[in-house]
C-alpha cells in the first residue's frame, strides 16, 4: 500500500528541458518567476501564457499530469480569485448589494491572478519539478550555491542530507510496511476506530521505525567513514557539469521572455495591474 508513493513529481523523459543542466534549470525557474510577475497588462499576460504553453509542449509532459498536479491548489486559486473580486475597488460597480460591491476591474484583476497562478505552477513544473530528478536537483543546488561555502554556509552538508534522505525514503517505506504487517499479525488495527484511536495505533509502528532509523544512521556513518568521507574536504565529483549549447539557448530564450514582457508592458495598450 505504501509502495506506490512517488517522491517529488519527476516525470522521466528526454526532452530538451529534461536534458538541460540542473543548475541552469534552477536559474531558468527564477527567471521565469520574475518574468511572470513582471507581466502587467493583458497583452503581456497573453505573451506569458503563450510562452508557458510552448514550454509545456517542449517538455512533452502530458497536460493532464500538470493539471492533476494543480488539483490540491484549487482552493488557493479560488480563494485568491474571491478576494480579488470583492476587494478591488473601481469606478462603477457592476453589482451593488448591501456591503457587496463588484467592479469590472475586480473581475479582470481576478482573472489575471488566476492566469498568473496557473502559469506559475505549469511553468515552474515543466522547467524544474517535472523534468528534474530530485537527485539532479540536489546536485544542481549544491553546485549553484557552492560559492556560499565561502561564507560558511554548509551547502555540501545540506545536499548530503538531502541525498541520504532521498536514498532512504524507499528503504524506510518498505520497513514501515513490514512493521505494520508485524503489528497487524499481533492484532493491531490501523483502519478502524476514531481518528485519535487510529493515530494511537500508529505509535507501535513509529517507535520501532525510529529505533531502526537511528541504527541505520549509525551503520551508515561508520560505512561512510570507512569510505574516507570527511565532509567537503578535498572532494571531487565523478560527473562534472558543463554548459552545453542547449543551456545557453534556454538562458537566452528566458532572458528574451523577460525583455519582451517589459516591452509589452510599456508599449501595449489595455488593462494593466
Amino acid at each position: 500500500m505504501l509502495k506506490d508513493i512517488t517522491i517529488g513529481q519527476y516525470f522521466p523523459g528526454s526532452s530538451p528541458l529534461h536534458r538541460a543542466d540542473p543548475r541552469v534549470k534552477i536559474i531558468l525557474t527564477v527567471m521565469y518567476i520574475v518574468g511572470i510577475f513582471m507581466a502587467k497588462n493583458v497583452w503581456s499576460f497573453v505573451f506569458a501564457v503563450v510562452f508557458t504553453a510552448a514550454l509545456v509542449i517542449i517538455s512533452r509532459i502530458p497536460a493532464k499530469t500538470i493539471l492533476r498536479g494543480m488539483k490540491p491548489l484549487i482552493y488557493v486559486i479560488a480563494f485568491t480569485a474571491i478576494i480579488n473580486i470583492f476587494w478591488t475597488k473601481g469606478e462603477k460597480p457592476l453589482v451593488e448589494w448591501k456591503f457587496i460591491h463588484i467592479y469590472a476591474e475586480g473581475l479582470q484583476f481576478a482573472a489575471l491572478m488566476i492566469v498568473r497562478i496557473i502559469a506559475l505552477l505549469a511553468g515552474t513544473g515543466v522547467v524544474l519539478t517535472y523534468t528534474t530528478s530530485p537527485i539532479a536537483l540536489t546536485d544542481g543546488l549544491e553546485r549553484l550555491l557552492g560559492p556560499l561555502k565561502k561564507i560558511k554556509i554548509p551547502v555540501h552538508e545540506f545536499s548530503m542530507m538531502m541525498t541520504i534522505a532521498l536514498r532512504f525514503i524507499p528503504t524506510l517505506i518498505e520497513e514501515t510496511d513490514k512493521i505494520m504487517s508485524a503489528q497487524k499479525a499481533r492484532g493491531a488495527s490501523f483502519d478502524s476506530g476514531s481518528l485519535p484511536q487510529r493515530a494511537k495505533a500508529l505509535i507501535p509502528v513509529m517507535i520501532p521505525l525510529f529505533v531502526s532509523a537511528f541504527r541505520r544512521a549509525d551503520d551508515l556513518a561508520v560505512a561512510m567513514e570507512c569510505r574516507c568521507y570527511r565532509g567537503d574536504v578535498g572532494r571531487t565529483r565523478m560527473t562534472e557539469l558543463h554548459m552545453k549549447p542547449l543551456d545557453w539557448i534556454l538562458l537566452a530564450a528566458f532572458a528574451a521572455f523577460i525583455a519582451v514582457t517589459v516591452v509589452i508592458n510599456i508599449f501595449a495598450p489595455g488593462f494593466s495591474i
Binding site: T163, D219, A223, R235, T236, M238
Partner: peptide
C-alpha cells in the same frame, strides 16, 4: 546490512562515493 552502506540513489554514483571523497580526478 547491504542497505545501510549505500549512500547514493544511483548505483554508479554510490560506487564513485569513495573515490570522490579521496579527491580522485573525475
Amino acid at each position: 546490512n547491504p542497505d545501510n552502506q549505500l549512500v547514493a540513489t544511483v548505483v554508479e554514483e554510490d560506487i564513485a562515493f569513495g573515490c570522490e571523497n579521496l579527491g580522485v580526478e573525475p
